[in-house]
Every structure is written in C-alpha cells, then in structure tokens.
Amino acid sequence: MKTISRYIILLLVPVLFFACNKDGDVITLSNLQESSLTASASDMVLSYDQADALVLSLTWNTDTLSITHSDTYGLAADAMTNTLQFDTLETFDNPKETVETSASKSFTGAALNSFALAMGLKAGVSKTIYARLKSTIGANEAPIYSNVVSFSITPYSLISFLYMPGDVSGGWDNYSVKLCSPASNGQYEGYVEANQWDNFLFTTQPNSTTATVYGSTPNDLYSLDSGSDHWNIWFDEGGYFLVKANTNDMTWSKTAITSFAVTGEFNSWSLTTSPMTYDSVNKVWTATCDITTVQYGIQIVANQDWSFYYGDNDNNGSLDFGGTNIVIDTPGTYLITMDLSNPEKYSYTLTKQ
C-alpha cells in the first residue's frame, strides 16, 4: 500500500495561499490508497419473487485522510469522494456513477432490476456488468481506482397493464382489452376500437376484487378517480383510438386514428398513395404495396402526420414509435400487415406476393 503526501496548492483560494506563505505552513495529506472492491454474487437471474430480497452487496475498505492544518484552512478530513462506476464495457467508456458515503452498497432485487434496465440491459438476457470504485480528493488530483469486479445480471420485464372491462371488451367481467406500461412508471397506452357511448373502467388487475379501479370524476371525463364514488368512463365518439392513461397525474386521453399509410421512396414519401385498411375481425391493418425502390426502406405514418409514425429500430418485426426506417431487402410487391392489438409489442410482417 502506498502513502501519498502532496502539497495542496490549487485547492487553496488566494487568501489562503498568502497565509501559507506568510506562516510558512506546509499542508499535506496522507493515507489515500487504492480500495479493494468485492461483490457478494457473480451471476444473478432476477425475478419478481426477489423484489424485496437482498441480491447484491458491493463492499470496499475506506481510508481516513490525515490532513495537516485542517482547522486553520478549512480542509475537512472527509474531503475524499468515493464514486462507484458501472459499465457494460470493461474499459468504462461511459460509466453510470453513484456517489457513496459509506463502505458498501446493497441492492434489492427490484432495485438491481431497475438499475440494470436503466443501463440498457434487456429483460431475459444475461449481460456482464463491470464495477470499480473511483476515489478523488479534488479536481486537480488524478483519481485512484480500485480493482474491477464483474457480475452477470438477467433482469426481468417491468411491464404492467391497465385493463378495460366494460362495453369496449364485451362485458364487465372481460379483461381482454388492456393498456401497457413497458417501464411500470404509471404511463400506459394501447390501441382500442370503440363505439360511441361505450362505457368502461380501468383496473390494475384482471379482476375487480384485488385491483385498484379507476373511473372518471363527475365533472371531468378525462380525470381519473379511484374513489368508491367514481363514475364510469366512456367514449363520446366512436372509432379507432390510441388511448393513454397516466395514474401519476390521474388523467387519460384518446387520439382518433383516421388513417395509417405506408410511405417510402417507392411512392415519393406520399402520405396518401398507399393507405392501410383496418380489419376489425382480425384487428390488423394491411396494405399491398409495389415497392420498386428499397434503398431507404419504409415508414408507417398515422393521420398523415410526420410527428406520428412507426419504424423498426432493431429490424426484428417490432414497431417503434419514431423508429428508423423498416428495411426492405429486395424490390417486389408486399402485403404489409401491422398488428397494434397487443400493447406489449406492436408488430408488423412483410409478405412478398
């Protein structure tokens, strides 16, 4: 272990610098050492059952800095900052950081799952995370790093749903129509076909016994109310809608979908030339397009509005709002089918004719 003593010059304001010269004080600090970092687990497959259980602890030794003349010059003995760094690359090119004040950090299953998803890990896929401790005593001093530890995490999906029993689903005991919150953050959405005056409620479970039930307030159709005296919610017009609900600010909204269209270089990026047709029985949108130019792919645009379109970021058949162009490998005539009935995953298929 190395003991480091340094003159602290840049940390002192000019007044203190003058006092040092006048008094002849030499300020030194010692005991800044590399920490030894350890992890309590190496491979974690997370699940809902572990949400409240302790699944990972990171521990390290702490140094107590010895700073001369700390009373005179206001340099606290706890001037050292410890920061945990996490990255999916061992080179720590873009680490996620947390500043720590103790000698350990613990994660419950729920906390580690959220942390892993925030780092970009995908649910159900194992990924290695690297961690190290960075210790610093000031902006003008190079940090000291601990050893690197690694562990594998397989996170689980945080998806949650709001169910819509009532007229829109075919009965008050039918929970087949639902909205989805991919991050379980209180913000839900889904596509719903409804008739004018169709009544419904939102429920957090596919039942009315254990679920939180949301209706509307008497004076505002679009304000949610979970009290026992709530009113039913209803559609004041019929059609096909993108429905959103926010249980944080207790509101819901609907956007009427008047059209979907396939657009690309093949039709000069027209929003009207290649409209899609809705099949109410199979709950899909379809269009047959002669795609002669494939260089730039295609997009699917709603309501002839370029701020409302779907692409495919991963080229895997899953639609992403505002996503990159859908790839067409070879020219030809294609039946394009879009399925928005599953709010957990909007999807499409390309069938060459």
Rank of each mutant, 00 (worst) to 15 (best):
M1T: 12
I4T: 13
R6F: 06
Y7E: 14
L12G: 05
N21W: 03
K22Q: 11
D23I: 05
G24K: 15
G24L: 10
S35F: 07
T38F: 11
S40G: 04
V45C: 05
S47P: 12
D49S: 10
D49N: 03
A53E: 15
L54H: 01
W60V: 02
I67M: 01
S70V: 00
A79Y: 04
N94A: 15
N94V: 13
K96D: 13
E100M: 14
S102H: 02
S106N: 13
T108M: 08
T108H: 06
T108P: 09
N113L: 02
S126W: 00
I129C: 07
K134V: 00
I137W: 14
E141K: 09
P143G: 03
V149L: 03
S150P: 04
L158H: 07
L158V: 04
S160E: 09
L162T: 00
Y163V: 14
P165A: 00
S181H: 06
P182G: 09
P182L: 09
E189I: 05
E189H: 06
Y191P: 00
V192L: 01
W197H: 12
L201H: 06
T204D: 04
S208K: 15
A211N: 02
Y214C: 04
P218S: 15
D220S: 12
L224A: 08
D225M: 06
D229E: 13
H230R: 14
N232W: 12
I233G: 10
F235H: 06
L242H: 11
A245Q: 03
N246P: 05
T251V: 12
I257A: 07
T258P: 11
S259R: 07
F260C: 12
A261F: 06
V262G: 06
G264F: 04
G264A: 09
N267P: 12
W269K: 03
L271A: 01
L271V: 03
D279E: 08
S280L: 09
S280E: 12
V284T: 15
T286D: 01
T286K: 03
D290A: 14
T292P: 02
V294K: 03
V301L: 11
A302L: 10
N303L: 10
D305P: 04
D314W: 06
D314Q: 12
L319H: 01
D320I: 00
G323H: 02
G323E: 03
N325K: 00
T330E: 15
T330Q: 15
G332K: 01
L335K: 13
L340T: 07
Y346A: 04
S347K: 04
S347D: 08
T349D: 00
K352M: 14
